[in-house]
Amino acid sequence: MPEDLSNMVTVSDAALVERARAGDRGAFNVLVRRHQVVVYRVCYRILGNGDDAADATQEALLRAYRRLDSFRGQSAFKTWLMRLTVNVSLNERERRKETVPFDESRAAAMPDPASDLARAEAATQLHQALQHLPPNHRAAVVLRDLEGFSYVETATALGVPEGTAKGWAHRGRVRLKELLT
């Protein structure tokens, strides 16, 4: 018998996964509530807009539900979920193959990000510049520099060796600096 969701707030992800596998849909709902914000945020940073990010979030969470049996617990549930999220977002990005020209003249005039307003505008420029990185480099920068994942977690979420994840994040940072200065 599924428990009241309010009783599951302190239950670990691993325990919720076990319950969800056993057919407790309420447990998976708690996992969704717990992680949907970060899933959406990563989709948004990779895809660049809210509508596509909402669709990708839905697809990633649904895929997670269908593939719960393949979660072996070798990494944290969040890292496993990020791998699905990045795959869904990159596939969607590849399918659309749209690019918005980056306005380098605006970037060149970008003020030093000292004031809140300047920081907000500069952050918007950075969000746009992110869309101009190769997809793997973008995903590595999003996970490492925006989500604060360790390189081990980033590598696991991207499904590559740690050295590759480091190289992708490095090249993404170098390109972002070129675009923004």
Partner: peptide, 21 residues
């Protein structure tokens, strides 16, 4: 200096609230 500025911007972007409507 360029990289320092980039990381300030990355921190600003990381702090930005991104939520589903």
């Amino acid at each position: 200096g360029g990289y320092r500025r980039l990381f300030v911007l990355l921190a600003a972007l990381a702090d930005e609230e991104v939520v589903l409507t």
